[in-house]
Each structure stands twice: as structure tokens, then as C-alpha cells.
């Protein structure tokens, strides 16, 4: 039996306050290698909150996140940060590219933080990723000179910089037109075919239908899902 790359067991997240708000409630789910999963649901259903818990950006109130079968609840902030750097790639609805840096420098950012490659190797890998995403010509441009689709593809390239096994995308097509949204989803599908575990949150049911598998959330609970061929 294949061990899931990423797994959530009984994940619950409650925001404290005078009236506690439950964002995610007792979610059990696993994401195997080479899979592309779309998390769908209405606005406020807890899709992004579940993704942040899975990506170790947030701490569950109850439950456990396992990465490669290893529990993560015992990790301190530094260890969680290091795990994110090495094992995860993130794409958000907004590209969050550093405006003072060129596209190439933005893509190299996680590699420089990890510091495992020599500068030439970092540059070559970043150029390779931009080439793979059909945008080598913009490598030396600033983000403000790019179209929305190009910025989001740059964010995908940055997410792949450290060659992570897991790619988490939070509404990656939320600010894109239909054509660019389809292109980004095609890229995510291709990355899953390469062997990565790809999880994308989307409210677009049509795009979600192109994923291998769907998880539907309502009020923080899994209410259904499908597994595409």
C-alpha cells in the first residue's frame, strides 16, 4: 500500500473568541503521490483553512497532519518553517511576487533561502522552470511588467523552485480570466503527472472537474468527493 504524501487526521480548527468559530471540523483525508486533488465548496466553507492546516501554515485545534507518514504536531515553528521550505510549494490567489526583484530573482528566492545549490545552478534551474512554463523571455522583467497569467505562472515556478513533493494552491485561478485559469490548471495537472502531490482550492466547479479527485466542504466538514480516473 502506498503511503500518502500528505494526510490529515481528524483535523479541526476553531477560532477562539467570545463566539468560537469552527473553520474546519474533523476532516480525515489523504493525498497520495502523483495525484491532483481539488478542494471545492461555497465561500466560507473552510477550503482555504484546510489547505493552510495541511501546509503547516496554521496549527489545528485538534487532529494531526502527517507528511510522508510523519506527524507534525510536535514540530516547533522553526521546524515547521524548514519543512515548508523543503517539502512544500505554495501558490496563492494573489501572486505575492516581490516587486523590486526580477522574475528570475523571484523564482530563485526559495532556492536562495534553502542554500543547497550554487548560484549558477540556481539560475539554471530557475530558467528551466520558466522555460517549462513557456515564459523564458520575461526572466529579467519586473513583476509589474507581466500580465496576470504570467505573474501567476511565475508564482507557480517559484513554488516549484526547491522541487517540492507537495504543491498547495489556494484559489490559483481566482484572479485570472478563463483562458489563463485553464492554462494554470493544466500546469498543475502536468505537475501531478510528474509524481507530485498537488492540492488546489477552487470555487470553480468546471476546473475542479478536471482534477483527479475532488473533496467538497460545507461548513468545514467533508460532505462529498469524487475520484476521477
Amino acid at each position: 500500500m502506498t503511503i500518502a504524501t500528505l494526510e490529515g487526521r481528524g483535523l479541526t480548527r476553531v477560532l477562539p473568541g467570545p463566539v468560537p468559530t469552527t473553520l474546519v471540523a474533523e476532516v480525515d483525508t489523504a493525498f497520495p503521490p502523483a495525484s491532483f486533488t481539488a478542494i471545492t465548496g461555497p465561500s466560507g466553507s473552510g477550503k482555504s483553512s484546510l489547505l493552510y492546516l495541511l501546509g503547516l501554515l496554521d496549527l489545528p485545534t485538534a487532529g494531526e497532519v502527517l507528511v510522508d507518514g510523519q506527524p507534525t504536531s510536535g514540530l516547533d515553528d522553526a521546524a515547521r518553517t524548514a519543512t515548508r521550505l523543503e517539502r512544500f510549494g505554495f501558490v496563492f490567489q494573489f501572486h505575492f511576487l516581490l516587486p523590486e526583484f526580477s522574475v528570475l530573482d523571484n523564482v530563485m528566492l526559495p532556492m536562495r533561502q534553502l542554500g543547497r545549490l550554487r548560484p549558477e545552478a540556481m539560475r539554471a534551474r530557475a530558467m528551466g522552470l520558466l522555460d517549462q512554463l513557456d515564459m523564458p523571455e520575461v526572466a529579467h522583467k519586473r513583476p509589474d511588467a507581466l500580465s496576470g497569467g504570467q505573474r501567476q505562472r511565475t508564482a507557480v515556478a517559484r513554488a516549484l523552485a526547491n522541487d517540492p513533493q507537495i504543491l498547495l494552491a489556494d484559489e490559483p485561478t481566482g484572479s485570472l480570466d478563463t483562458r489563463n485559469a485553464a492554462a494554470v490548471f493544466a500546469i498543475l495537472r502536468a505537475l501531478a503527472r510528474e509524481g507530485r502531490t498537488v492540492v488546489a482550492v477552487t470555487h470553480d466547479e468546471a476546473l475542479a472537474a478536471t482534477a483527479d479527485r475532488r473533496i467538497r466542504l460545507v461548513d468545514g466538514r467533508v460532505v462529498g468527493g469524487t475520484a476521477a480516473g
Binding site: L57, D77, T81, A82, R84, L85, F90, L98, L109, Q113
Partner: peptide, 16 residues
């Protein structure tokens, strides 16, 4: 603030 958030999320430690 957004740049700091993205750097933290991609794995830059607080010390960085």
C-alpha cells in the same frame, strides 16, 4: 507586510 508573509510562508525563518 505581504512580502514578509510570502517569505515566511515559503520558508524564511523569523530570524531571516
Amino acid at each position: 507586510a505581504r512580502d514578509i508573509a510570502i517569505m515566511r510562508s515559503v520558508g524564511m525563518p523569523r530570524g531571516g
